[in-house]
């Protein structure tokens, strides 16, 4: 049951209409950041207010919602946001990627491939990919308008000159349909290839910065690189110590003060599903009988 003291999905209808209009313009111009009049939410700026507003504008009573932070359903902020929508929209919630129709995420794209009919909502802290090269909004807006992305290429090239490779490990910039350079939110660059040609709708909300942007399904998204230094979606060279998966993105966990560590899938649903199917990693606990 939803909490009757609030409108469905918390926001008032006028606010939802405003966000919905921005979302549609975002879909029409993939990768372009649409300004929107972000509202103060009952959680702090920087804690997913953009994602929460986008989710609130998209949810229907029939939806099943999954919320992840760092790939995990049980991190505190994910728990808090999931509880917020269970309370204000009365929607079903799940931890299963395959069962969710709307997934709100911070910093990861689920390992399990998304399908048509799903919506992935990203929480975005700094939507402007050029911001750390040019702090002024008036200047970066001009650069996008003129398709003037030279500064970004110079930065990436300087990385290569200095380190032999591009030293951006997350929030790795992408080019959308050959037009807008876009910040994919602070996902590890390992996740970047999943942005492109994805059957799901991907929506990005930055509350404090008042921007919404979008990738329709099957949009072409290319990680910026150079012919002689092609983009590599790297990860730690280990397998998951719980489920044994060798291709998933891993969290490193320090297990003692003598250098002991283990690697586990950051996507908790993916890892649990594999273990339920009988997959075992190096340090998987013995099955209880």
């Amino acid at each position: 049951m939803s909490d009757q003291a609030f409108n469905f999905a918390y926001l008032d209808e006028a606010t939802k209409r405003m966000i919905r209009r921005a979302l549609l313009k975002g879909i029409a111009v993939p990768g372009y950041q649409v300004p929107f009049a972000s509202r103060e939410m009952p959680m702090p700026y920087g804690w997913g207010t953009g994602g929460v507003q986008v989710t609130a504008a998209c949810l229907t009573p029939e939806d099943t919602l999954k919320v992840i932070d760092q790939g995990a359903d049980d991190t505190t902020n994910a728990v808090s946001i999931r509880a917020f929508f269970a309370r204000t929209a009365g929607v079903e919630t799940t931890t299963r990627t395959g069962e969710a129709s709307v997934i709100q995420t911070r910093h990861r794209i689920p390992e399990e491939p998304l399908v048509e009919g799903q919506i992935l909502v990203y929480q975005v802290p700094i939507p402007e990919p050029l911001r750390f090269l040019e702090p002024r909004e008036s200047e970066t807006r001009k650069m996008h308008a003129l398709e003037e992305y030279g500064l970004m290429h110079v930065k990436l090239y300087e990385d290569i000159a200095r380190h032999g490779e591009i030293s951006t490990a997350y929030a790795y910039p992408v080019r959308v349909e050959g037009r807008y350079v876009m910040d994919p939110s602070p996902i590890p660059k390992f996740d970047n290839p999943k942005l492109s040609d994805n059957p799901a709708i991907q929506l990005f909300g930055a509350g404090r910065e008042q921007r919404i942007y979008a990738l329709p399904p099957y949009t072409q998204v290319v990680s910026l690189d150079f012919e002689d230094h092609p983009f590599v979606a790297s990860k730690a060279e280990h397998s998951c110590d719980l489920c044994g998966c060798g291709t998933s993105y891993l969290d490193e966990v320090i297990t003692d003060d003598r250098g002991g560590r283990m690697f586990v899938c950051s996507d908790t649903d993916f890892c649990e599903t594999r273990r339920a199917q009988g997959h075992r990693g190096r340090l998987a606990p013995e099955e209880r009988t």
Binding site: W47, Q70, T76, Y170, P188
Partner: peptide, 9 residues
């Protein structure tokens, strides 16, 4: 807030 993923990368 958790930044395990970005920090790991």
């Amino acid at each position: 807030l958790p930044h395990y993923v970005d920090f790991q990368s």
